[in-house]
Design a protein around this nucleic acid. Sequence first.
DNA 1: GCCGTTTGTTGATGCAGGTCAAGTCTGCCG
DNA 2: CGGCAGACTTGACCTGCATCAACAAACGGC
Lengths: 251, 251
Amino acid sequence: MTSQAPIKVSRQEPLACSHEFSANCSDCRLNSICLPFSLESRDIEELDRIIQRGRPLQKGGHLYRQGDDFGSVYAVRSGTLKAYRMTDDGREQVTGFYFPGEIVGMDGISQSRHASSARALETSAVCEIPFSSLEKLSASMPQLQRHFFQLMSREITEDQQLITLLSKSSADARIAALLLSISMRNARRRLSATQFRLSMSRVDIGNYLGLTVETVSRVFTRLQKSEIVDVSNREIRILDEAALRQLTSGE
Amino acid sequence: MTSQAPIKVSRQEPLACSHEFSANCSDCRLNSICLPFSLESRDIEELDRIIQRGRPLQKGGHLYRQGDDFGSVYAVRSGTLKAYRMTDDGREQVTGFYFPGEIVGMDGISQSRHASSARALETSAVCEIPFSSLEKLSASMPQLQRHFFQLMSREITEDQQLITLLSKSSADARIAALLLSISMRNARRRLSATQFRLSMSRVDIGNYLGLTVETVSRVFTRLQKSEIVDVSNREIRILDEAALRQLTSGE
DNA sequence: GCCGTTTGTTGATGCAGGTCAAGTCTGCCG
DNA sequence: CGGCAGACTTGACCTGCATCAACAAACGGC
C-alpha cells in the first residue's frame, strides 16, 4: 500500500551502474543468461522490438499480483524479485527469488492469470516481454521456441529440487543449499561466488525454505560459529564451500 | 531389474476396457484432457501421425530413467505412473503421480536428459510424443504451441502447490490434499470422485508428501476413525469431502 | 543525531512427526 | 492349501523445529 504512492524519482539510489545492461538485447551484459541466448543477430533485433523496458520498480513494489490478468513474462535486468503466493489460510509462501537475467512470470500462462505475486526486494528493473508477441515470434524462430521451452522446463526442475529440499532436508541443509544456489547464480553473472549481500530478509528466507525466522537465524549463527560462513547482517562470505556442500547432503 | 525380462504377453491382466482409448487421437476418450484439446480436426490428424503408441508397460517397468537422453514426452493412456528422482544421498523423492490424459516427461527438456525417472505403478500404456516433431508441429500450429506452453505452466503451478503443502502443512493436511487431488482428477475423467483404489503404496505416498510410512499409515487410521474417509487397504471412499477440504487448510 | 519501527537474535518449552521395534495382514507362487 | 516376502499397522520413545517471549541491533525519517 505505502509503496503505491505516485512515483517519486528524486534522490533515487544509484542504480547499479546503468552501463551493465543496455536499451537493447544485442549488447546487454545478461544476454547469455536471458532469452536471446543462441539467437542470430537478425532475430535478436526482432525480439528486441517486442520488449518493453519499464521504469525501475521501487523496493517493495509489485510487478504483478496473484490473480492479475496474465499478459507478459519479465526478464530481470537489475535488482532482485521474490515470487510468492497466498495459501488458503492467508499465509505467504515464497516460491522463488529472481536475479538479473532470470525470467519471472511463467506460472501465469496456464490460467491466463498470474498464479503468484512478484515484488521487488530492492530497486529493480525488468524487461517486459508480452507473451502473445513471444508466441508469434516463437512460431517463426525455432531457436526462440526451443529456448523458451527450456526455460520453462528449467523452472520445473528447479521447483522439483526445492520440493526435494523441503521434504527431505534439515534446516541446516536448506540454508546451505540456498546459499550455494545464490553463489552459483552470482558466478554465472560474473559476480563473486563467495561474497555477497542477501537482498531478502530472514523472514523471506524462512518463508521460502519452510522454516521460521528463529530457525533461520539460529542456523546462520551456527554456520558462523563453525566458521563455514561469515555472516554479518545480510552480508555473507562463504569460507568453506566444501563444508557447505556437505551440509546439503545431510552432514 | 526383474521387470526387464523379455516381454511375456500370455495371461496379461485385462487392460481396463481397450475401447476406452483408441489408436488415434480423434476419438480418444481422453482427448479433452490431453494434447489435442482445442485443435482443428485436420490438425489433430497431423499430430496423430507423429505419436507412437507403444506396447503396455508392465507394473514396475520404467518409461525412462533419470539421466537418459531426452527425446519424447508421454501422454498416459491407462494405468498410473510415478515420477521420482534420486537425492544426492541416494534416497528417493517422488515428484508426481500421473493419471490417464496427463503428460509426463517435460522436465527433461531443459537439459536434453531426463531429470527424473518414471515408472509404472500398475500395467500402463502411454502415447509417446517425440519432442522434436512436437516442436516442428508447434511452429505451424499456434493452438498446439499455446496448449503445450500451458501444460508446462500448469506443471509449474502444481509443483508450487506441492511446495506450499510441504512447507506449511501438517501430515493430515498433506494426505487430505492428495486424496482431494486424486478425487478431482478422477472426476475430470468421469470416474468416481468419492471412491477409488490407490495405485501407489504407502511408501510412495510418504515419499511424495515428505512423510514416513508410519505417519501415512497413522493418518489413514485417524481419517478412518473420524469417519472422514473409509479406508480398506488401498480402497478409498471419501465420506465427508467438506471435512477433508477443511483439513487441507489447517483444521 | 535521535527515536520509533522494523528486522534479527537468543533462550525456554512443547509437540508433531521421525525412528526403532514388533507385530499383522495380503497377495503371490508353488 | 501352505508358506513366504512385501506391504501395512501399531506402540514406545526421542528429537528437531515451532512457538512464545524478551531483547538487541539496524534502518529510515525528521
